[in-house]
Simulated scan of single mutants.
Amino acid sequence: MSVSHHPDPQLTQAILTALEDLVKVVAQLRSPEGGCPWDLQQTPESLIPYVIEEAYEVVAAIQSGDQKAIVEELGDLLLQVVLQAQIAQDEAQFTLAEVAQGISEKLIRRHPHVFGDLPVENLEQIHRNWEAIKAAEKGQSPDNPPPLSQKVAEYPRKLPPLLATLKLSQKAAAAGLEWDCIEDVWAKFHEELEEFQAALATEDKAHQQAELGDLLFTLVNLARWYDLDPSQAIQGTNHRFIQRLEKMEELVSGSLTEYSGAELDQMWQQAKAQLGH
């Protein structure tokens, strides 16, 4: 089925021309004749850290609201897509065209309310349809879904730990593995906190790690109950910590290591007050 809405033809042509130029540049970088030794040395696996790093930098740019930075970081991330596709093409595996065509077909297939004639009444129905289509794509029947453990096993493998934990928590709750009220979640948190403190009194590092994990898992569940994003929360804390550290360094001459703990705490509170958080 064809898409009924198209952007301005001149803009479309400009986009296609720019993408074609990028593909040519990457192809030259990967060319055995006159290409870049670094690019020629790369493999899909060696580029994994760059894919992750660029994705995080896109997020940081979006959060900053700096349009110039967003354009630049999206370009860096797009480069990783094109480079992965070029390496695959060099190995006669797949091409960028297949990547683009595949995602276009998927979007059309998963939006029958837009590209078909399926009526929908609300976002919840759209979500149910999306999940049903995904299951059908995997050869799964809505009447005989796979075990929950199988459905969620991909999260720890594919996602950052905090996001994976939130996804696991959401899927488990949707399947009925949920507390009756927020007081029960808080009780579980205090239970896990006591178990972690008890583990710290031992010399068993593996046990300490396990109890710390249980405590963090429960804390993520608390965040879910309060409709908070734990990844955004810790990212915000990291950002505020750096801001306060910068402010402290503005208040002193020399290194922070030259000051006592009490002096550093006083400067920390002063920096916190000046920043307003």
Rank of each mutant, 00 (worst) to 15 (best):
L78S: 08
L78G: 07
L79S: 10
V82S: 02
V82H: 02
Q84D: 15
A85C: 06
I87A: 05
A88M: 13
A88N: 11
A92L: 13
Q93R: 12
T95G: 01
T95A: 08
A97C: 05
V99M: 05
A100G: 13
Q101G: 15
K106I: 04
R109L: 11
R110Q: 12
H111A: 07
H111K: 03
H111S: 05
H111N: 10
P112E: 00
H113S: 01
V114K: 03
V114C: 03
F115Y: 02
F115T: 08
G116E: 07
L118N: 10
N122L: 05
Q125R: 03
Q125E: 01
R128T: 09
N129I: 07
A132R: 05
I133W: 01
K134I: 12
K134M: 14
K138C: 07
P142L: 04
N144H: 14
N144T: 14
P145H: 02
L148D: 00
L148W: 04
Q150N: 05
K151N: 09
E154Y: 04
Y155D: 09
Y155L: 10
R157L: 04
R157S: 11
K158N: 00
L159A: 05
P160S: 00
P160E: 09
P161S: 00
L163Y: 13
A164P: 05
K167P: 13
L168N: 08
S169K: 12
K171P: 03
K171G: 09
A174Q: 07
E178G: 14
E178N: 15
W179M: 13
W186V: 14
F189H: 09
H190D: 14
H190G: 11
E191R: 15
A199M: 00
L200N: 11
A201W: 11
T202V: 01
A206L: 08
A206D: 04
